[in-house]
Amino acid sequence: MAERSVLSIRDLAVQFRSEQGTVRALDGVSFDLRAGRTLGIVGESGCGKSVTARSILRLIDWPGRITGGQILLDPEEPQPTDLTALGPESRRMREVRGGRVGLIFQEPMTALSAHYTVGNQIIEAVLQHRDLSKADAKAQAIALLGEVGIPHPQRRIDAYPFELSGGLRQRVGIAMALAGDPDILIADEPTTALDVTTQAQILGLLQRLQREKGIALMLITHDMGVIAEMADEVAVMYLGRIVETAPVARLFAAPRHPYTRALLRAVPSILATPRQRLSTIGGAVPHPGLRPGGCSFHPRCAENLGERCRREVPAPVPLNEDGGASCFLAEDAA
């Protein structure tokens, strides 16, 4: 039995306009975030991971805009809220952003100001989403800092961000994201800028918080190791589309999209033999403004079927628990 879906993205499309033309940064993206589960989103630079995250929070600025699809909060309730229908600065959207949905950035300074103490900023965030006295908000901020594993929170609350190490700063970033007591957390490469030992600590922290609070976690990364460590389900993105979804064990054991297969073979491994070569994927990710026709992966695909892949667009991945791949090979195998 699948967990309750708390957020359903359906056919989401986002375009950026530029002098060179229109870039379809997202081109029909669909997935669900479920209570207590982690959806890992993986893909190479520019495939649309961050745009997906920012769309959910309605943080896409001009020249970008959502041009289609729905972002349904509480899709299983009688009256879901479609976030694409809300004004980005509307009262309801402000409540959702940082309230129901918390965001953790790659660089925690994106969320923090250099000019205020971490305490002031977390208290501010707490007050924005909860009706508390200043003193209670401060107590809450200290509790949050403790919860994310910051030693001596009573003391650290008066620190400025620059006085903290990268790892502690990311913990503060997580405390900020938790200030509104969200049940959905979106983490956009939260450990990419950190060392492995710090990364391991932060990933452990996210796992613990999720378990304790039943949070639906959307974890964006380009690191297959992080996916293997963290995700329950995985969505692989390529050029603004999801090309494969699968439960994590299945994705690694039996990837169904040629891009996923190629990506997995190209990842350096801690278990490599000396001087072991890697399989490579021909070419590079094209600019999304120059999306190839047919299956957009076909020019790089070692398994492509020729004419058909050049001309026809494979069906999007099915929205079921077992997932699937947007590829004719997978369609034919099914």
Binding site: V196, G225, A228, A249
Partner: peptide
């Protein structure tokens, strides 16, 4: 070494 996440669930 222990901190490196292996690409193997």
């Amino acid at each position: 070494l222990a901190a490196v996440p292996a690409p193997d669930p």
